[in-house]
Amino acid sequence: MAEGAFTYNGGKVDPGETQNIRYGISETYMGDPVRIPVTIVNGTEPGPTAFLSAAAHGDELNGVEVVRTVAHDWDHADLHGTLVCLPVLNVPGFLAQQRYLPIYDRDLNRSFPGSETGTSARRMAHRIFENFVSPCDLGLDFHTSTRGRTNMLHVRADTRKDEVERVAKAFASNVVIGGSGPDGTLRGEASASGTPTVTIEMGEAHRFQRELIDRALAGVESVLAEFGMRRTSAVRWPGWRTVIDGSSAKTWLRADTGGLVDMHHDGGDLVREGERVCTITDPFMTESETVRAPFTGLLVGVLENPLVYPGNPLCHLVELDTSTRHALERDLSRDAPA
């Protein structure tokens, strides 16, 4: 619980103060500094410290706009606590518009909590983690799907931990996928070290998708309300929610043949067991493979690039319990054109 200045190696931000910082985390081949943008907003009233981060993968842009908007467009007169806004973690990847760090193709989001004496990626991760993640009481890390695929907005979190589950549910997405995640992820390592953190997946790489950005901003506002950081805001309820845990069926459907894919559903659609999800055809359209749903569920992620080799992922399908399925069906019927 923050009651005074937010401090980092090289400076501090007093209550009632906002600072925009370009913080050095590495050096280029020429010895020039690699700096990440950081905005720290310290409210006049005491409260929790929360970090918002994006672009750990340099081509994932939706979260960049979420974090920038919170930092620079929101009115923080009512802020109780401190916001640490990190819109671009992977600056080298962001500049090159590629997913990984150009240095040896390292994944920054498999390098946390980092090391002072490790690889380039781990040294960068260490400086970010120690200065701007460890001091926080909770965190939201924004991602998109990788190139050629798209995700509906959902949260990934280790829901076995009560405080992490609290953050996940406060974000008010319809879908929460449980699990600790791979080693070295920001949300996993932060949660393990005492800063409950979730990943928000939303949309696709290389673009801003305004509808998703606006929904994510509403989720941020809900989280800050839940933790008493915005007293004039309210915690949201998404209307229906499913938490996918270890007992739930979930699978990536994969292509068994190469070819061109015709997807018959979009992300967020409900598909029933045995229903046709997509069709794969050869260039002459003389041979085709129909891919069907192995169980009734929700399409969380789908292919955007229609070209596949055998083994390429087509869609991410998660099982829904009966009550959640009925709630989703009611939503879909309300949204259907008259």
Results as ranks from 00 to 15, higher is better:
216 A>D: 07
240 W>A: 11
178 G>R: 03
81 G>Y: 08
335 D>E: 13
287 E>N: 14
59 D>V: 02
104 Y>I: 00
106 R>V: 01
252 W>S: 05
33 P>E: 13
8 Y>K: 07
8 Y>S: 02
252 W>A: 05
251 T>G: 03
269 D>C: 10
55 A>S: 15
288 S>F: 11
148 G>Q: 03
126 H>W: 10
245 D>I: 00
45 E>I: 00
173 S>D: 11
264 H>V: 04
72 H>I: 01
296 T>K: 07
160 R>F: 06
184 G>L: 07
244 I>P: 03
107 D>I: 02
78 D>C: 01
109 N>G: 04
31 G>Y: 09
233 S>Q: 13
263 M>Q: 12
174 N>W: 03
187 R>D: 09
60 E>A: 04
125 A>R: 06
25 I>G: 01
141 D>W: 03
42 N>E: 07
259 G>A: 09
34 V>H: 03
85 C>N: 09
262 D>C: 03
177 I>R: 10
267 G>A: 15
161 K>T: 06
195 T>G: 00
35 R>D: 15
270 L>K: 06
282 D>Y: 08
236 R>P: 00
173 S>W: 00
337 P>D: 11
173 S>P: 01
147 R>H: 14
277 V>R: 03
278 C>H: 01
157 A>P: 02
282 D>C: 06
224 L>S: 11
247 S>I: 07
67 V>P: 02
198 V>A: 03
24 G>Y: 00
124 M>E: 15
155 V>F: 05
245 D>R: 04
29 Y>H: 07
319 E>G: 13
190 A>S: 15
